[in-house]
C-alpha cells in the first residue's frame, strides 16, 4: 500500500510529447514577425507548458485544495509585484503616454 497510488506511465509520456510539440511551436512562431503579438504568443505558450508541468508532473491535478491555494498565492504575489510596479513606470510623465495623460500631469491649465 502506498500513500498515493502512482500515476499511469503513459500520462507522463503524453505530457512529455505535448511539451515537446509546444516547444517547437513556440520556436517556429517566434521566427515569424508577429509584431505586437509575438510576446503574448510566446508567453501564452509558456503558460500552457508550465500548466502541463505543474498539473501532471507535479501532480497538482489530483492534489489537495491547499496545494492549489499555495500555488495561487505565489502567483498572485508575483502578479502584484509585476503589475503594481507598472502603475509607476507606465504613468511616469517622461515616458510615452497616451496624449491626454501627460497634459494633466505637466500642469497645463
Amino acid at each position: 500500500m502506498s500513500l498515493h497510488p502512482p500515476a499511469k506511465a503513459w500520462t507522463y509520456w503524453a505530457n512529455f510529447l505535448a511539451l515537446c510539440v509546444l516547444t517547437v511551436v513556440t520556436w517556429l512562431t517566434a521566427r515569424m514577425d508577429l509584431g505586437a503579438l509575438s510576446t503574448p504568443v510566446a508567453l501564452g505558450i509558456a503558460v500552457i507548458k508550465a500548466a502541463l508541468v505543474v498539473l501532471f508532473f507535479m501532480h497538482v491535478w489530483e492534489s489537495t485544495p491547499l496545494t492549489k491555494l499555495v500555488i495561487g498565492m505565489s502567483l498572485f504575489m508575483l502578479t502584484v509585484l509585476l503589475t503594481f510596479l507598472f502603475t509607476d513606470y507606465a504613468t511616469r510623465n517622461y515616458d510615452v503616454l497616451p496624449s491626454d495623460h501627460a497634459a494633466a500631469v505637466s500642469g497645463k491649465h
Binding site: 516547444t23 513556440t26 520556436w27 517566434a30 521566427r31 515569424m32 514577425d33 508577429l34 509575438s38 510576446t39 510566446a42 508567453l43 505558450i45 509558456a46 507548458k49 508550465a50 508541468v53 505543474v54 508532473f57
Partner: peptide, 18 residues
Amino acid sequence: VDLVWIFLFPLLYLLGAH
C-alpha cells in the same frame, strides 16, 4: 527548475528571434 526555464526560454531567447 524546469518551470523557470520554460519562462526563461521565450523571455531571453525568443524575444529577438524574428
